[in-house]
Amino acid sequence: MAIKSILCHMANDDRHRDRLELAIQLTTRFSGHLDVLYNTAPVAMPAGAAGRAASNVFLAEQRDIAKKKAEAIRQELDERFAKVDVGHAYHQTEGDHVEKLAEYAHLSDLVIVSQAPPKGVTSNIALHHPEEIALEAGCATLVLPHEEEFWAPGRRVGKRVAVGWRNCKEASRAVREAMPFLLEAEDVHVFTEEEEAQSLKGVGIGRYLSMHGVKATVHTDIHDEGNIGEQLLTRAAAYDCDLLVMGAYSRARWRELLMGGVSEYVLHHLDRPVLMSH
């Protein structure tokens, strides 16, 4: 599957420039079109506020602040796009980040977002939950680590790719949607359990990738009794992979969240970009 339509989440947080630069880089690399979505949360009164006059003043101030932030972002985008030859469009919306991103993602091939900041880190916005975007987007979601030390802006993503594999629709879709990255990669490592590697009566993931022109090394040392998310991140780091491809799982979602599922763990402990598909 080609990556021709890319959607970038452009919020007023401290990593929005990094997302934009990667989005421009990937749009150029795959000869595509870039849609940039800036979304603002609806202005609302804080809990415990009293007095109609005071409330009106507060709401007016917050709307003015939101308008100025949006104008600053738009100016920043205009200045950046004036320096590059990239087909693009700007969209400004108001509402829930996940819902608005999902609406535009239905006609996108790739959505670029950032990992939610760690607890205790103040963000300029009520940041979305990237795992929810991966489940709702309807296309591949590329999640970037919040900490800059784990992903340097301007670095090429997909030089060495790690694939977390299990024989299910989510992982299968992730592999297909990541194919443009896999085909360009210098090195591809698949991490799975031994029985998964030879699934589908011997036609395993290694053979599937080979038929598509991707030469991959299949590692069968993932153990189901351990923390699979931790194992995937550890293996990806050991082989210096700059992109992890995996499925975003939602089966028995409440149970996965309570017990600490693979998707949840990876998204909370990101140390490199991850491409997820549901």
Results as ranks from 00 to 15, higher is better:
H146T: 02
F181Y: 11
A216M: 05
G213K: 14
E196T: 00
A116M: 11
L135E: 04
A152T: 13
M179G: 03
D109T: 11
E132C: 12
H128F: 03
S172N: 15
K201Y: 00
E230I: 02
I228R: 05
A237W: 00
I205G: 00
L135W: 07
A171M: 03
E225K: 08
G164Q: 05
P118A: 12
R156V: 12
Q115P: 09
C139T: 14
I228K: 04
D242M: 04
D109V: 10
E147N: 14
D224I: 03
M211D: 12
P130M: 04
R155P: 02
S108K: 14
D109H: 09
V203I: 06
S114N: 15
K201G: 00
Q231M: 11
V188D: 01
S199A: 15
E193K: 15
R173M: 14
N227I: 05
I112F: 12
G164V: 04
G158T: 08
E186H: 08
E230V: 04
L142N: 03
C168L: 05
L110V: 10
A248E: 02
E148W: 04
T141G: 10
C139D: 09
L182H: 03
V218A: 00
Y208G: 03
A134E: 07
V188I: 07
A174T: 02
A238L: 12
F181D: 07
L127G: 12
H146Y: 15
V163T: 12
E149F: 03
M179S: 09
L200K: 08
C168E: 11
L110I: 08
V161E: 11
K159C: 10
T141W: 00
R173G: 15
A137G: 13
P130W: 01
P145C: 10
T122R: 14
S172F: 14
E230L: 07
F181W: 10
F191Y: 08
P145S: 10
P118L: 10
T220M: 02
C168M: 06
T234L: 10
G138L: 04
H223F: 13
D242I: 03
D221R: 05
G204L: 01
E177I: 07
L110W: 07
E177C: 15
G138V: 04
D242R: 04
V245E: 03
L144V: 09
L110N: 09
L244I: 06
Y104S: 11
V121K: 14
L135S: 13
L243D: 09
W165N: 08
K201W: 00
E131P: 08
A116C: 08
T192Q: 03
L183K: 15
E194G: 03
L200P: 04
L144K: 06
L142M: 02
V245N: 02
T192F: 02
V214F: 03
K169S: 12
L127N: 13
L232C: 08
A236V: 02
K169E: 13
